[in-house]
Amino acid sequence: MIKGKKVVSQSFFPSLLLLVIFFAIMGVMNHGLTLSFVKSLILTNTPALCLAIGVTVTILVGGTDISLGSIVSLVNVVIITLAGLGYSITISALIGLLVAVICGVFNGIVIGIMRVNPLLTTFATSTIYAGIALWILPNPGGSIDYAFAKWYMGGLFGFIMTPVMLLILLVFIWAGAIRTPFGLKAYALGCNEKKAYASGINVNGIRVLVHTFAGLTAGVAGICLTATICSGSPTVGATMSLNSIAAAVIGGVSLNGGKGGIFGAILGAGFLSILSSIVVAANFSSYSQSFIKGLILLIGVIASILAGDKVLKDKIKGIFCKGGAKS
């Protein structure tokens, strides 16, 4: 019972509930979920899940990062271009990852050390990274050995898939980090920057580290995406940045910083992924698809904010109680 209470009181609980319910709806609509569907869902959406983790950690310290989608495009283009030049898949992927980390460090330096607003910085760098991607590979194209896709679709012990392994790895890195004093400092920074600074916390250093980690997640996302499409497309990540922020919010992460965690973001991103599939499977007309998707999304966000905001909840409770007393 105590354990149950613990789960319910977590900020990610609403997104967990949403995810479970929407999986159930999908199952009912399609007369059971097939293994291959779940597998495709994981393969396709791991990049989005990675980005949700990345953006969440930057939001937690009171910042944000809207350049991650562009980093994904850049990584994709770098891997495909290097593979085209004859480098092995491993080398290409590792260089891609390195590029992403460098982009993250760069964001971190501008935001943390030069103290430029995170939104402005990453807005500018997102254009820069997307521009470099377009410069390297102006037209979609190129290809990489299918072994890369096989590696991605396969996995350890036959059933733990590679994308799941990569996700677990990212989660471990972050979970490990927040168990050190660094974690406490990061949350403190997210709650109140001035107080954190006054308490002697190295604000700049934490920002650099956090954006570097976000860059790493974008690198992993880029590798996963490249393995999914086995080809290069300089604009492929363009739409991913905003989706990842939405995923974080649905997962109970407060945009003001200091509240929430990466589990919520992962669940939120999972919910967004299944939402796309549900709208298709329900066979809504073309004109209403966007509307219905947006509506469900809005309800999801409201539900998750309601669950996390005590003051708001008490107000609503008050309204209901008054109504009850009158009748």
């Binding site: 097939t34 495709s40 979609p140 086995c230 599939s277």
Partner: peptide
């Protein structure tokens, strides 16, 4: 990514044929 999700949903819904107007010529593998 959304297009891939939508296509997967259609595959799972049991379509006999898929007609795809791709977002980008290379993202469908």
């Amino acid at each position: 990514t959304e297009q891939l999700n939508q296509i997967n949903a259609m595959i799972d819904a049991g379509v006999d044929a898929l007609i795809i107007d791709p977002v980008s010529p290379t993202t469908l593998t």
